[in-house]
Write a protein that binds this DNA or RNA. Structure first.
Lengths: 323, 323
DNA sequence: CATATTCTTTGACTTTAGTCAAGCAATGGC
DNA sequence: GCCATTGCTTGACTAAAGTCAAAGAATATG
């Protein structure tokens, strides 16, 4: 698996399958939603209203979610602009229009008074609910053409497709260990395991930026729609021996297979640096992680360090890189 | 299966799964395609160009396809209008614009000189190929984030989803036995089995319109995007006994489960007419059909008529309809 | 503390998309 | 051969969507 993961050639059948679905879905199914979403309102405004609601709801479970947490009940114009890809002027005017209709209230951001925050009024919320009701009714009408068993099949197929598409759309990049995104991820990682380990976790144990830069190592960050949702580090233990640390995935991006992908890319990075072996340790409490390492070809080895959190130790020999 | 098929309540989980996918896909994946499709050209024109090419290619295997067959290498404005849902004037102008750019040639239809036919010029074809190349590259870039095994999974999931969504989007309607759509389907049915039966098929054997109307019977036609793609007839044999005939599905709409759905709806229609039993016969050569009838709860019975094509005879008792 | 940068608003546009009605040329039905 | 219908074009619009640049206020940065 590992090094073949990002094989250069993608089968034409897979490409045409995706395109065929894309064509069918966007033209025939997805278009319906938009057409009925607006109803009496321009589509742009309807979408904006919907998005303000989405962003406003903090901690959308199952979605990628904000790593830094969204504003409470409001959406900054800044973020809306990024999410919808709109021109600043255009957005400003649309928000004003919605404000004029009494659907949105605009205030100033707490920390930074340059930033303006849009929030739904009760009337706006009612409007969004109406949108949702209509879209639900549409989906329901479509599903009515299927038997309950077929509906279940469809739900499963769509779930699998979404999971895989999300994974595919995630970009993994090497970043500087001191960068903001790196810090964000490592802090989130530390906080996560501090909560999981009975003895807590000391952030001072994290890799230092210089360990994961240049020839000696790397720090990878995974981005979903420009937001960091995972990371993984590689550092050099000794000649030809690498160590993998801090493989972490944001709560909202779990169960996609992202940890495996990060692991695979760290192995590639190791092989590129002529590290023929990579090692890692895990805490006793992280049983799923242990299972994953085994499934990815890691074998248990004796303790190789004095890490206080390490309870299980693994190693994998990497195949030589074809140049 | 039969009578529960169109159960009134659709599980909320299935609705939200479809909506969630819809949101994710149209905003994040599908949108990409459109954005890059046009590039330097308005989206409307790009879409039109693409559609002229699609329609121009006769006999697109796997798609619903034209029941009457498309024009050779050209697309009538009439059809483009229907497929893209455009205003006649708007379309006329766009075609003229494309013609002015040397991408499209417009001629007159052979049979009917009111109808105008648009056809791609070599330059237009090159443009469409460029569109396709860009869209392929985009899809390929996305798939590169997955392992080959995951790509296969995705292809399977999308295939299943598309199959089920197509089936769900098909509308089944009772039509008059003498209507144009009914004739189209029954003629296509007759032509199909004339080809399959070694002894051929005599269209005079088809049900008469009066047999399938009012209280005594029904003729159902299945529509996919306003095009008839299947049919099925129910007539009365005697008191409380119905007969199902001419269950047919267009070549491009097979393997979706449409025959089963038609069968189920015919059974509903029978139950509504207080026909407690339905019978049918099949030709010796239609082995898949026989398997389907068995799977749908039909049991073999002795010959009940003197139909020259009938070799196997089936019957199903219908559960009483709750009022 | 001066200067650059970020976030937003406003004015002044253009392009795209879409609608409606009048009208002309073929065709189909009687 | 008349008349309704169909398919298309043209003129005259409107609304929505989007762009660009100038400028003001708040904040970051050296």
């Amino acid at each position: 698996m590992g090094s073949k993961r990002q094989s250069e050639s993608v089968a034409a059948a897979d490409v045409s399958s995706l395109r065929r679905f894309n064509r069918y879905f966007t033209r025939r199914i997805g278009a319906l939603d938009d057409r009925y979403l607006g109803q009496d309102r321009p589509l742009g405004e309807a979408r904006l209203l919907f998005e303000i609601d989405q962003v406003g709801q903090v901690g959308q479970v199952g979605e990628a979610g904000e790593i830094g947490g969204g504003g409470q009940g409001g959406a900054s114009l800044r973020e809306l602009r990024a999410r919808l890809g709109l021109d600043a002027g255009y957005l400003s005017r649309m928000v004003k229009a919605l404000e004029g209709q009494g659907l949105v209230r605009v205030g100033v951001h707490g920390g930074d008074s340059r930033v303006r925050v849009a929030e739904l009024t009760p009337a706006g919320r009612a409007e969004v609910e109406e949108q949702n009701r209509r879209a639900d009714a549409l989906a329901e009408g479509l599903l009515r053409g299927l038997s309950p068993a077929q509906r279940g099949e469809l739900t499963d197929a769509l779930g699998a497709a979404r999971r895989l598409l999300r994974l595919a759309a995630i970009r993994v990049e090497a970043v500087d260990g001191g960068s903001a995104d790196a810090r964000t991820c490592l802090d989130a990682y530390a906080a996560d395991i501090d909560e999981r380990f009975p003895e807590g976790y000391d952030p001072a144990t994290l890799v230092r930026p210089e360990e994961v830069s240049g020839d000696s190592g790397v720090l990878l960050v995974a981005y979903e729609e420009e937001r960091p949702v995972g990371c993984g580090a590689l550092r050099t233990l000794g000649p030809g021996v690498g160590e993998i640390k801090h493989v972490w995935v944001h709560r909202g991006a779990r169960r996609l297979g992202l940890a495996r992908r990060l692991l695979g890319e760290l192995e590639r990075a190791a092989a590129e640096r002529a590290l023929g072996v990579v090692r890692l340790d895990t805490h006793a409490s992280l049983t799923e992680a242990q299972a994953m390492y085994r499934a990815c070809g890691y074998t248990a080895i004796p303790r190789y360090n004095d890490d206080v959190y390490g309870a299980h130790f693994f190693e994998k020999r990497l195949p030589a890189r074809r140049p």
